Amino acid sequence: MEGVVHTEFLEQGQTVNSERYYSTLRALKLRLRRVQRDKNSTLQHDNARPHTSRQTQDALRQLELTTLPHPAYSSDLAPSDYYLFPQLRKYLKGN
């Protein structure tokens, strides 16, 4: 799939915690149902605290969201760059 499926922004001064992330995951799941219908989707996760908490892991199982763990940090391995920098992605397409 190409393009952004779901975005959320926090008010200035707010931080992401497990509860906030859980509400985001629920909203994402609803959006995926509308956008993708019968397709499976995979959520790429890094090791940020809200992503690794027990509450989040339980939510992922409950919402039946498949996750792809983010590799350990490496300056030359950043899969998110392809989504953050669309022009780079277009330039590298097919290579």
Rank of each mutant, 00 (worst) to 15 (best):
25 L>R: 06
64 E>P: 08
37 R>N: 06
66 T>I: 10
41 S>L: 10
23 S>E: 12
59 A>P: 00
26 R>W: 13
64 E>K: 13
46 D>E: 08
58 D>Y: 05
15 T>L: 13
45 H>L: 11
30 L>P: 01
60 L>Q: 00
62 Q>H: 11
33 R>S: 12
45 H>T: 08
67 T>E: 07
45 H>C: 08
13 G>Q: 07
33 R>P: 03
18 S>R: 06
45 H>P: 00
55 Q>C: 05
53 S>Y: 01
22 Y>I: 01
22 Y>F: 03
34 R>S: 10
14 Q>V: 09
52 T>W: 02
51 H>T: 00
25 L>V: 03
62 Q>R: 09
65 L>A: 01
35 V>F: 05
38 D>R: 09
18 S>A: 15
12 Q>N: 10
63 L>I: 06
40 N>C: 11
43 L>D: 00
10 L>T: 10
36 Q>P: 04
67 T>R: 10
35 V>P: 01
65 L>F: 02
55 Q>N: 08
48 A>F: 01
30 L>K: 12
21 Y>H: 05
9 F>S: 15
50 P>S: 07
23 S>Y: 11
26 R>V: 15
57 Q>I: 02
16 V>Y: 04
46 D>L: 06
53 S>W: 01
52 T>S: 03
38 D>N: 10
36 Q>G: 09
16 V>C: 12
64 E>D: 13
26 R>G: 03
58 D>N: 12
67 T>Q: 04
56 T>W: 01
51 H>M: 02
67 T>K: 09
61 R>F: 02
41 S>E: 11
14 Q>K: 11
28 L>M: 07
19 E>P: 00
58 D>K: 12
25 L>E: 03
49 R>Y: 05
56 T>V: 03
61 R>K: 14
40 N>S: 12
37 R>S: 07
56 T>M: 00
12 Q>C: 13
57 Q>T: 00
39 K>A: 10
53 S>M: 04
20 R>T: 04
38 D>V: 03
29 K>Y: 06
14 Q>L: 14
41 S>Q: 07
